[in-house]
Design a protein around this nucleic acid. Structure first.
Lengths: 207, 207
DNA sequence: CGTTAAACCTAACAAATGTTAGGTAGGGTA
DNA sequence: TACCCTACCTAACATTTGTTAGGTTTAACG
């Protein structure tokens, strides 16, 4: 019973190969345009073989969606933890936005697949992703609430609503982001400038 | 040849009935989960009858997508035109956001259907909607550029990029907006506050 | 060497889909 | 009244889909 457990170095496709192929296809074509046969072909196997590793298409999608959220969540936590606690709200928020956009736009296909297909997936699959999403949302809410308690964020800002606005704006970049026109971090800095300071000229002069 | 043209007051379903039913279904279920048979049933006819009014499913979707963009575009133009030209950038931008969110969240199903299914639709259909989208985007760019030329918007703000951020953030509200928890206009004001002035406390005191 | 089990393949299934060809009711017009 | 055209219906089609049952290969282990 140690056969496959000891030696998986061969040219096997396996769970990971299927998930990688599926995530890549979901990212670039959306949910409805990706069949099990297209996943199988991209992975280098036949459609029926998928059922050796997964019980259903929903199971594949569920796994990809969850991995996508866990990836951003972990990356943002790491990015925020990397900045000293005494740093300004500007630096902290900027680190979070950088982490989010880096994962979404430049690292792997799981987070981008999640953002792309979440709204197209069967209800049961969406529900299976809510727990992971709530975890990430909760983390952001706590982070932002601390900054508000410190007085860095205006007290009249509704944190929950701002978090929705933030995530919505960030995730929407997936539709038009072009790596040839600038990195994800440059984009994150632009977004941070707008969200933190607004776009209006606030030099008290009204010429 | 004046039969149907003169008397359409009867209990006919017609093009409009099909489009309305389809837009409503697309809005709440997404593209992939809506079949021609479900559209027909919602409209009160049989699936085959749809082909008397439309040549294909794509034609229905194309028409809905275009109507959705024209609706927001028109509403935002009307909202902006309703405010005196000498008003502040705050008032002008706020009016635009209000118009956009009102149409998206409270008026009809066409704009919301567009936002919901645009990313799920066949490429040819998406392309057929790009012209209308570019028209709306161009209008916003011109509007914002004027405000920037007046010095109201900071000169280091990239207008095209900000417009993408703005539309992305606004459209994302469709996923979680709940009319029971506040109107679209209240929401628009919150968004305007954040985008115009930022969320940071900018009272020069750093206690 | 023979056995075993993991990782794949083949071939088929039922269901759902967009689409089409031909038919029908019924009000308007001549 | 006879005709016509609009707006629908019926019934079927080819295709694609997720899924399944049973077979084949290959490498490790005793």
């Amino acid at each position: 019973m140690s056969a496959a457990l000891t030696n998986t170095i061969k040219s096997e496709v396996g769970r990971e190969g299927i998930l990688d192929a599926a995530a890549s296809l979901f990212r670039q074509r959306g949910y409805g345009a990706v069949s099990l046969r297209s996943i199988a072909q991209a992975a280098g196997i036949k459609a029926g073989s998928i059922y050796y590793h997964f019980a259903s298409k929903d199971e594949i999608v569920t796994e990809i969606l969850n991995a996508g959220i866990l990836a951003v969540h972990a990356e943002v936590v790491a990015a925020v933890d990397a900045v000293p606690a005494w740093e300004s709200a500007d630096v902290i928020v900027r680190a979070a936005l950088r982490g989010h956009l880096r994962t979404l736009l430049e690292h792997g296909d799981y987070t981008s697949a999640n953002v792309r297909i979440f709204g197209q997936v069967p209800l049961a699959v969406r529900d299976a992703n809510l727990s992971a999403r709530r975890g990430y949302e909760k983390y952001l809410d706590v982070l932002l609430s601390k900054l508000q308690a410190d007085g860095a964020i205006r007290s009249d800002v509704n944190i929950g609503r701002f978090r929705l606005m933030l995530i919505g704006a960030l995730n929407a970049t997936l539709e038009w982001f072009d790596p040839a026109k600038g990195s994800a971090e440059e984009l994150a800095d632009d977004y941070a400038d707008a969200f933190l300071y607004g776009i209006l000229n606030q030099t008290g002069d009204s010429s």
